[in-house]
């Protein structure tokens, strides 16, 4: 069971509304291995963002089990969840990704600072990672002095610098043009494979599935289809965007 970096069992998330109980996530079970990059796709309202929030330890499921490196997120205290997010999870978000008053390298180093692991080797690693992402000349630029694509790449570096078990990306290409979007996802996938992390990307843009190992398709809160065959994934990627 612990062979997977991440494993969920029958995760359910319900909300109360005027029209009754809504199941945003309905009995989702999945497994992601270390070194595997997975896309979570589906139309708006399919539950993929809720699922990502649960996996990110930002939201408690109504029931079910989420094991990250053997630890159950669903039963953790708030303090333990904050520590888990800091130590074992890397994030990139759609927008407002970076701390605006920290430079590119300071944003990346922030994860090491928070984990009390910022040393000379960590500083070097942050610079090297940013250089690999094509930002060697932008180390001391503030987010406001960088393009959206450059900011996303800084966020990718920040998500990976502290060697997390799980890397989560919420619509990382939403604010990028097509060329930049491909570049960002390709780099992201390359680093996840290279560093042997479990990666999950939520995206509307099916074209980005070209770089993932598996595609998990959600609809109405349920995991309705899993694409594992490379041909099927490429075919899906050529299909374009979800509505």
């Amino acid at each position: 069971m612990t062979a997977y970096a991440l494993e969920t069992q029958s995760v359910i998330k319900t909300y109360n509304s005027d029209s009754g109980i809504i199941k945003a996530v309905d009995d989702v079970s999945l497994q992601i291995a270390a070194g595997e990059f997975v896309a979570l796709v589906g139309p708006s309202g399919s539950g993929k963002t809720t699922m990502l929030s649960i996996l990110a330890a930002l939201l408690q499921p109504s029931s079910g089990q989420i094991l990250l490196d053997g630890q159950d997120l669903a039963t953790m205290s708030d303090v333990a969840r904050v520590a888990l997010r800091r130590e074992k999870i890397g994030f990139t978000f759609q927008a407002n990704n970076l701390v605006p008053y920290l430079t590119a390298v300071e944003n990346v180093e922030l994860m090491l600072r928070l984990n009390k692991k910022l040393d000379r080797a960590g500083r070097m690693r942050a610079r090297e990672l940013l250089a690999r992402l094509g930002l060697g000349e932008r180390l001391n630029n503030l987010p406001g002095q960088m393009s959206g694509g450059q900011q996303q790449r800084v966020a990718i570096a920040r998500a990976l610098i502290h060697s997390p078990s799980l890397v989560l990306a919420d619509e990382p290409t939403a604010s990028l043009d097509t060329e930049r979007a491909y570049q960002v996802v390709e780099t992201f996938a390359g680093l996840i494979h290279e560093q042997n992390r479990a990666g999950i990307m939520v995206t509307h843009d099916l074209r980005m599935c070209e770089y993932v190992d598996r595609v998990l398709q959600m609809q109405d809160g349920k995991l309705v289809k899993i694409y594992t065959d490379r041909k099927d994934i490429l075919k899906l990627a050529k299909g374009g965007r979800h509505s």
Binding site: A56, V82, A83, R85, F91, A95, P100
Partner: peptide, 14 residues
């Protein structure tokens, strides 16, 4: 608010 949200999401405690 968004900036503090990011900080908290990446594991910055209250």
């Amino acid at each position: 608010v968004p900036q503090i949200g990011v900080l908290k999401a990446i594991g910055t405690s209250n």
